[in-house]
Structures are given as structure tokens and as C-alpha cells.
């Protein structure tokens, strides 16, 4: 059975990850280990969580530029409430998540009901969230709350001696739930339909308004969760956290094989898109002499390749079969 063409981008993504990982293993001693693989997840947990939310937005034909700022705002609110006001984390974390979801659904409602491009609305959201960080404080707020430090330092040992962090587990759960949602629920399929054609979705009687607002709510929620995880990782709140991070997220989604025009792609692809970004960073740190900016260069090249690949595939897809 020949490979269905719709799976080509995701297969390319997965193969690319495997090739990079294998290449790294041959070149550097100590690279080929479960721990290196786990570290990819540990170091990129917040990227994975954000990218999962972003996948839904891009699949629906939209874009969300506010995610980086939302992460910063989440770290800031968490740090401020826990550290300066002494609120318990068990209250703060749900509050931060709620804030992210509300922020996202607000943007979604504006996008849908006023028919404004998502780019502009979320750009405004990006500036607003970033600005709000500085209302709280212009300085870094370091967290020494015992819950946060405990979560940050917890290492769950896996059979074989390697370990994984709580953040990575959260990210894996988010990704798994998202894959199920995208493929097996009506909401998920409506997102794909919306990305395929909004006009048709309306005429087919699908809940376009609800789906669209939900997508941005989900992205807001995911970025707030990523902010919480980022707080565990950095143990601080700061207005300059995750600057430009929305672009890394979009890059991960696109390298994962999702079409920027919407309707085509898989959350699993995003998962590997994130791992590819991680593996590039790992290779560069193993290399030792290269500047970390090489990460950006390689990611830039990969983006070009993937966009071209999609163009070629969709051009061939339009040669019809009877």
C-alpha cells in the first residue's frame, strides 16, 4: 500500500527527527541515551504546551501572536501573588490558567464577532499582555516558595536510570489529550473544517462561532499553562521572559507539517516539530564551539524547506484524480 499523500509532511518531520538524533549519536559520545531524549522534553516542556495550543489556532486558519507575552504575564502574576502577596500556589495556579483562558476567549470573540484578522487582534493582545507585566513590576521577581522549588527539583526516575521532570509529564499529557481531541472529537474536526473553509462550515451547519472562540481560549489556556511550567523552570517572574517566543512556537508547528493556511496538519507533527528544535539545540551544545544562534539559522533553513515541501505537495495534490 502506498503512503497516503496527506501523511507525507508528518512522516518527513518524524524521519528528520530520527536522522538528526542518529547523526548526533554517531558524532558525539554520550549523545545516544534515553536521558538526552528526556532532556529534550524537560527543556522544551513549555514550548510543547504552547505549540499544542498554537496548532489548533493554525489548523483553524488563524494565528496567535500573544502566546509569548501570555507566558511572561503568567510568570509575573504567579511570582507576584506567591512571592509578594503570599497566596498559596494551589489558588494561584488555577487563577493564572483562568486568566489565560479568559484572555484567549476575549481575543477569539473579538476576532469572530467583529470580523477582524487574528493577526491584528492577537498582536494587540501581545502588546497588552507584555505591558501588563510591567504594571506588576519592572524587575525580576525570584520565587523561593517551597512548592515551586519542590516541583522544579523533583526528578522522577525511570527504569534504566534516567529521569524526567513534572513539567515534561504535564507537557506529554497535554499533547496526548490534544491528539485525541483533534482526531476523535467533534470540536477537533470542526477546527479542521473551519480551517478548510469557513463559508462551507457555516453552510454545513457547524458551530463556527463557538469553535473559533474555543480555539483561542484553548491557546490562551495552553500558554498560561506553559507560563506556569516556565515558572517552575526559571523560578522567577519577569516581563522579559519568552520574548519572541510566539515565533518559535509557530516555527515548531510549521516544521511539524501544519499548513499555515489552516485545515491540514497533526498535533503529533507539532510534537516532533518541538523535538526537532530541541535536538538542534542539543547538537549545538554538544558541539561546544558553535554559538547558540546557529539554532536560529538551522530552524530558519528548516522552515524554508518545510514551506517549500508543502507548496510542492499541495501543487501535486491539485492534479486531480477521477
Amino acid at each position: 500500500m502506498s503512503l497516503n499523500r496527506k501523511y507525507i509532511p508528518i512522516v518527513v518531520t518524524i524521519l528528520l527527527f530520527i536522522i538528526m538524533f542518529v547523526a548526533g549519536s554517531f558524532r558525539y559520545t554520550g549523545f545516544f541515551s534515553l536521558q538526552v531524549l528526556m532532556n529534550l522534553l524537560i527543556d522544551n516542556a513549555f514550548l510543547l504546551i504552547t505549540a499544542v495550543g498554537m496548532s489548533f489556532v493554525i489548523l483553524s486558519g488563524g494565528i496567535d501572536l500573544s502566546v509569548g507575552s501570555m507566558i511572561a504575564l503568567s510568570t509575573m502574576v504567579s511570582a507576584s501573588l506567591v512571592q509578594q502577596h503570599g497566596w498559596p500556589p494551589v489558588v494561584v495556579i488555577p487563577l493564572v490558567l483562568l486568566m489565560g483562558a479568559a484572555f484567549g476567549s476575549g481575543m477569539g470573540a473579538i476576532i469572530h464577532y467583529f470580523k477582524i484578522q487574528p493577526f491584528i487582534v492577537t498582536l494587540a493582545g501581545m502588546f497588552m499582555a507584555r505591558g501588563l507585566c510591567y504594571v506588576i513590576s519592572i524587575d525580576t521577581i525570584t520565587i523561593d516558595n517551597s512548592f515551586y522549588t519542590a516541583v522544579a527539583q523533583t526528578k522522577i526516575t525511570l527504569p534504566g536510570g534516567s529521569f524526567i521532570s513534572i513539567s515534561a509529564i504535564i507537557a506529554l499529557i497535554v499533547a496526548a489529550v490534544a491528539i485525541y481531541t483533534a482526531h476523535y472529537t467533534r470540536f477537533g474536526r470542526n477546527v479542521y473544517a473551519l480551517g478548510g473553509s469557513e463559508q462551507s462550515s457555516l453552510l454545513m451547519g457547524l458551530p463556527v462561532a463557538r469553535t473559533k472562540i474555543m480555539v483561542y481560549t484553548l491557546s490562551g489556556l495552553c500558554s498560561a499553562l506553559a507560563g506556569v511550567v516556565f515558572t517552575f523552570y526559571m523560578l522567577s517572574g519577569y516581563g522579559l521572559h519568552a520574548v519572541g517566543f510566539e515565533l518559535d512556537t509557530i516555527a515548531a508547528v510549521v516544521i511539524g507539517g501544519t499548513l499555515l493556511t489552516g485545515g491540514v496538519g497533526y498535533v503529533l507533527g507539532t510534537f516532533f516539530g518541538v523535538l526537532i528544535q530541541g535536538v538542534i539545540q542539543t547538537i549545538i551544545s554538544f558541539e561546544g564551539t558553535l554559538s547558540s544562534w546557529w539554532t536560529k539559522i538551522v530552524i530558519g533553513l528548516l522552515l524554508f524547506i518545510f514551506i517549500l515541501l508543502q507548496r510542492v505537495l499541495s501543487a501535486r495534490g491539485s492534479s486531480l484524480k477521477r
Partner: peptide, 22 residues
């Protein structure tokens, strides 16, 4: 007025997909 990115089956059933427990 259908969605070109979805499968043929989905285009027939979307909004009324057969489900069990969601």
C-alpha cells in the same frame, strides 16, 4: 460548499459523526 481538506467521509458526516461516549 464542502471542505476540501477533510476526507470524503467527513464531508458527508461532519456535524453528525457517529460517536460513542463522545
Amino acid at each position: 460548499n464542502l471542505c476540501p481538506n477533510l476526507t470524503v467521509a467527513e464531508n458527508i458526516f461532519i456535524g453528525r459523526e457517529p460517536r460513542r461516549f463522545g
